[in-house]
Design a protein around this nucleic acid. Structure first.
Lengths: 208, 208
DNA sequence: TAATATTGGAGAGTGATACTCTCTAAAAGT
DNA sequence: ACTTTTAGAGAGTATCACTCTCCAATATTA
């Protein structure tokens, strides 16, 4: 298909597709003459993936580029792709206090989680805990444990629901579920918070 | 304290504080003469809250402004503040298919969640589900139920851990926990995903 | 065959966001 | 008297993610 059809199929303006091509987010089409290239289903899928990560996952194009590079890394073992993709999703200017880092290491050790010791996700969690401390809000162990248990249930279910037929699909689904499952989970948590809050504080009015 | 000290105490540049004042994110100090204002602890707290929401919660200043407006709405009942704050946290250009909205309504009804029927969080969840559908990834009922159960556990724990001594603190803690608890939860989920993935796919290498 | 439309490629322009800088006149400290 | 700080307002800057404009080279249609 030509670029116009690719645009129609994905609802992405031609100018934007050209921009993604320039930025290396989308691989070039098959050149047919000097002013024409042919695109295929892989381009449609890739373009939809990019838009999903940007629009719904809230990723910057730079981060999408990093994630796609990992997705395309065919040589990596499947269970390494997840860690690598996670790494690409994480900002690179993270800092955390030694206290939080230790707390995270202890949590991981207590649960015997198989996580690379250099995993940047550890740092991400430590930084998130620090952010709460900084505004005077300490997340106590009980709540943190509840989070960790819930996270375990979720992650186990997610990984067991991953398609395994085709490597490329598995990798794509992994990235998608990590990036787009987050918003789903957070939205559910908010609905559940409203419910919990209504039960605790809502005496006078009943939700309609 | 003068603006210089406010800046020192919060690590926010004077120019940025002035910008927040202009933008109405920070209430003006007590004017002392024409070229001098006095700021107090409330300003320190407010400024730290703003930075936390922006830097760690990833909110735009426009959204922070909306959240703060709800936080300052003294007349509202406590259990309404949460819904209002949630509303302010949600983008206003959301759309979702009727199918997803129905699915969300059913989920809420099945669990007998006390959630306002007009709650924009319903729409947020429906839109998140749509985003996954759009890239050809259907979140099946089993996984959605797992998410919902986990979300319930988390939300119940969160709401029961909220401080209740002082109204202003409760409201602030609610906003903080909603905005900054998300990153904590997502980071934990990622660590748990790596663990699950290692158990499922990681046969040859052991994490070091 | 002539007129019209589409494409690849590259550079420039745009609009939003979140600052950051500069300036002025007033006042406070020394 | 002199230096420093401030409020307030406007202008300038950096980044991001497009979006527009242009050109020569084709393709398509009349």
């Amino acid at each position: 298909m030509w670029i116009a059809e690719l645009s129609r199929r994905t609802d992405v303006p031609v100018a934007t597709i050209k921009y993604y091509l320039r930025e290396g987010l989308l691989p070039p089409g098959e050149a047919v003459g000097a002013t024409r290239s042919r695109y295929d289903e892989a381009h449609v899928r890739r373009l939809r993936l990019i838009r999903a990560l940007v629009e719904s996952g809230g990723l910057s194009l730079a981060r999408v580029r990093g994630v796609l590079a990992e997705v395309d890394e065919e040589s990596r073992e499947l269970h390494e792709v997840l860690g690598a993709a996670h790494g690409a999703l994480i900002p690179d200017d993270l800092v955390a206090t030694p206290e939080s880092r230790l707390r995270v290491d202890d949590l991981v050790a207590d649960r015997s989680w198989l996580v690379y010791s250099e995993s940047r996700d550890r740092l991400l969690l430590a930084a998130a805990l620090d952010a709460l401390e900084k505004v005077g809000y300490h997340l106590d162990d009980e709540l943190l444990e509840t989070y960790a248990s819930a996270a375990t249930e979720i992650a186990d279910a997610e990984v067991s629901h991953l398609p395994t037929d085709d490597r490329q699909r598995t990798v794509e689904a992994t990235v998608l579920l990590t990036a787009l499952g987050g918003p789903v989970l957070l939205a559910l948590r908010r609905l559940a918070q409203q419910n919990a809050s209504a039960h605790r504080y809502g005496t006078s009015h009943l939700p309609g």
